[in-house]
Design a protein around this nucleic acid. Sequence first.
DNA 1: CGACCAATTGAATTGATTCAAGGTCCGTGG
DNA 2: CCACGGACCTTGAATCAATTCAATTGGTCG
Lengths: 218, 218
Amino acid sequence: MSTLPVFLPSSSIPAVRHATELRPGAVAKAEAGPVTFYPTDSTIFAQGDKAGSVYLVEFGTVRICRVTSDGRRQINSFHFAGDVFGFEAGDERQCYAESVDGAGIRVVHTDASGVPAHRLLQLALTSFASAQHHLLRLGRMNAVEKLASFLLDLLDRQESDTVVALQMQRCDIADYLGLTFETVSRVLRSLKDGGIIKVPSIDRVEIVDAAALAALSD
Amino acid sequence: MSTLPVFLPSSSIPAVRHATELRPGAVAKAEAGPVTFYPTDSTIFAQGDKAGSVYLVEFGTVRICRVTSDGRRQINSFHFAGDVFGFEAGDERQCYAESVDGAGIRVVHTDASGVPAHRLLQLALTSFASAQHHLLRLGRMNAVEKLASFLLDLLDRQESDTVVALQMQRCDIADYLGLTFETVSRVLRSLKDGGIIKVPSIDRVEIVDAAALAALSD
DNA sequence: CGACCAATTGAATTGATTCAAGGTCCGTGG
DNA sequence: CCACGGACCTTGAATCAATTCAATTGGTCG
């Protein structure tokens, strides 16, 4: 399997609505580089890399991860089309970023580029806010609440308001929510049995009873 | 118990080294307001408040919290002298801030003030980085690892390199680490029994074997 | 001293994990 | 076209880490 990113001729970019069309104010394309395609599981940046750029997701899904010395992985966040990720306090990356499902990414140089600092601040604060929200999930929610909250989060960030696409596998969800993949599987089953969701395919969840999910999620 | 902050005549500010002396570059005093004293457990800002300012800790300890609808509390961070807290993505506070032990705080207005955006960005990224670090703790560490990592964190941020002052009570530590206060108590005991720490008083921990703690913490 | 609050300690319980055994899906090659 | 292999997912049973509930200790302040 190739893990090398490749530059895309613009004709090969999938015909999905693009990040900068979805969120016009985020970062102008002119401020970002060309779209690079990262195949499934390829590395976008590694822990220890020199920081100094952020990244704009054009399409696909990205995960931001850290690992303990003995190999346990925590996924801090997932990023979809329109999201900007890769903020770092120091000059060295503390996390690594990988493509989950084949993703198109633009580099945004934060130093010399035309992106104004207040705009970068705004984007960084968005990342910070979702990290803070995730802290509550990890620290104080049980498995069912974590899943409920996660599904609603995805629902919020995707186009449909009934169907959630699960681009990542169960293991990714588990590492995001601080669970095991078996527990993720079991909880999805129990939500299904409770008539709250349907799982028409392995990577799709239909939200049948959003109110019930919301009640579970907090 | 009074929960109202009071303005301090400068003569009454405790004779501890001040924030802006500890970290000269952080935020100049001139950019911040006067020091306000917040007694133990008083509110600095509440969830739902209008955002728009950040705060500089001059002395004392602050906790940033969120609660679930049924009252479970997650403490996202503690802040000590020199720290800047209160960053918010939207215009409404998602978290609330309280004084842990009587804290002196300066307001820093982010809009009109002279603090340059790149400086604010830097400070926000610091908050973001520690939130990310905390995600790994909450998501993937067991109780012993959480405590070990927490103690080393405090050690890092305080003056002494052997003694940690625990200004917050066990319940705060528990709500920070996603544990119960009983578990915090038990883990401290087991670290004590293991000869890794000493607990000379209820609010002091002496780090006997920092290497062992480090080994446990990751 | 007595009251109160925080912290400790013990015993029973439980939610999630671990370990193990299938099941499903999909791409590849005969 | 179907059989095979491998990756991922599901399900079950046993285990365990942390919680819950309860009792006790310790420290502080009026």
